[in-house]
Design a protein around this nucleic acid. Structure first.
Length: 416
RNA sequence: CGGAGUGUAGUAUAGCGGUAGUACGCGUGCUUUGGGAGCACGUAGUCUGGGUUCAACUCCCAGCACUCCGACCA
């Protein structure tokens, strides 16, 4: 894409009100726009990052048998009343509205109830199980206090998968596969080294649920981490008994702050029973379906990545989620549309021919401004053409300071 | 929901009970072109409502919005 065509611009300064690093950098670089507290729009650059993260998640979900769908944002009151979660006393983040007919509707803060209710239509026999369905959906939550930029918003994008299994054993098997898939996802988006399976409060059916906590000083959670075992326990369930069950020793645990980037739950059969989701087994016996849910905060992951990968000049995107692979800067171009294409144009076309995602800074700006923008936007590779580079290209990683001169072939090889 | 703070051009900020200033941006022109370049001219503003006052952007009250701390967080 040509940067001259990109409608967003970088900003040198933003409101002192915006204090989180992720919101500051993403706003200044033109990835997001704040509509109101805790509510952000994702602009072209930001959306590209979102789509990259989604694709990494999608591939892993498909690999464990997930089928993608898209549920609705408007939800029926009755479904949530069945599990006693319509009442504001029980769920305090509801946005509620009313149809012209007078019927109450809720705006989706989760989809467990509607998706489980929908499955009543499709699950009636053991032959229909298991079923794994997932979606990427905007969740709307009337949080009292949004904070930390896109880390906790009133509106955010989440991947939620729901598993419907025949038995506790079958569920357990899938649950383990989901854990592995999650670890691969966090590795894939560049957070693998700092993301740990964490035992957390489990609810009625199981003692623990599992969170995926990414170490981050700006995170909201405190966890106790055993680095050698690569697992952690959330402060909220820390007890001598829990430590013993998990075979963890208090003196080997490190207290660290983290952000909950994923969370998986075993609901057992409780919700199925409440909602009437049963199947008939081989012997003709009516059995409740075993339910699990598996979430990843897509936009939160994006925010965490920015919090972890930046310097004083801007963002440093991991290659797997960067909006573009390479930022091509043409310095001191000689604008003359009638004559032959500039060196920048040639390189731009060559990269595009190789299907390399390139943001081409073809704007008539000074070198300093282009460098500053490139650092701020944070694309992993920077390629510069100018009088100085002649028929070669100067390339540099955003994360490093040394550059080198290469020819076009080497450039393409480096980026492929 | 408890506590604290802040609302001044598109953005960031200064100031004052008496005609609102600077920087960036934006527009025009010229000069520049390897780290947010220069000159000139131009552009645009006191959150809303009420009160005090001869006079309110400034003081007081309320509302709304934003930020931070805490509580909450399937």
């Amino acid at each position: 894409m040509r940067q001259s065509q990109l409608f967003t611009k970088t900003l040198k300064n933003i409101s002192a009100d915006e204090q989180s690093v992720n919101a500051k950098l993403l706003t200044r670089a033109g990835f997001i726009h704040k509509e109101m507290a805790g509510v952000y729009a994702y602009l072209p650059l930001g959306l590209r990052v979102i789509e990259k993260i989604k694709q990494i998640v999608r591939e892993e979900m498909n690999a464990i048998g997930g089928q993608e769908l898209l549920m609705t944002s408007l939800q029926r009151k009755e479904l949530w009343a069945k599990t006693d979660r319509w009442d504001d006393k029980n769920v305090d983040v509801w946005f509620k509205s009313r149809l012209k007919t007078g019927a109450d509707v809720g705006l989706a803060w989760s989809h467990e109830e509607p998706i489980t209710d929908m499955m009543l239509n499709y699950i009636s026999s053991y032959r229909d199980l298991p079923a794994y369905v997932y979606q990427f959906q905007t969740k709307l939550r009337n949080e009292l206090r949004a904070k930390s930029g896109i880390l906790r918003g009133k509106e955010f994008l989440m991947k939620d998968l729901y598993s419907y299994s025949l038995s506790a054993e079958a569920h357990e098997e899938f649950y383990k596969k989901a854990i592995d898939a999650y670890l691969r996802i966090f590795g894939g988006v560049g957070l693998g080294k700092d993301t740990f399976l964490t035992f957390a409060s489990g609810g009625a059916f199981t003692q623990f649920s599992h969170e995926f906590q990414t170490l981050l000083d700006e995170g909201e959670d405190v966890i106790y981490l055993d680095r050698s075992k690569k697992i952690a326990i959330n402060k909220e369930v820390l007890s001598d008994k829990a430590l013993e069950q998990l075979d963890l020793k208090r003196k080997e645990l490190e207290e660290v702050r983290a952000s909950e980037t994923g969370n998986i739950f075993n609901f057992g059969t409780a919700k199925s029973e409440q909602m009437g989701l049963y199947y008939i087994d081989e012997k003709g016996k009516k059995m409740p379906v075993v339910l699990g849910s598996y979430g990843i905060g897509i936009t939160r992951v994006m925010g965490v990545i920015v919090e972890k990968f930046h310097d004083d000049k801007g963002i440093i995107w991991p290659e797997s989620v960067a909006p573009f692979q390479v930022h091509l800067l043409e310095l001191s171009p000689t604008p003359s549309p009638q004559s032959s294409p500039t060196r920048g144009e040639e390189v731009y076309r060559a990269l595009r021919d190789e299907e390399i995602e390139v943001l081409y800074d073809d704007r008539d700006l000074t070198a300093g401004e282009k460098f500053a923008d490139a650092d701020l936007i944070g694309i992993p590779w920077r390629a510069v053409v100018s009088k100085k580079t002649g028929d070669r290209v100067e390339i540099k990683r955003r994360s490093e300071s040394e550059s080198k001169l290469v020819d076009l072939k080497e450039l393409i090889k480096e980026l492929s």
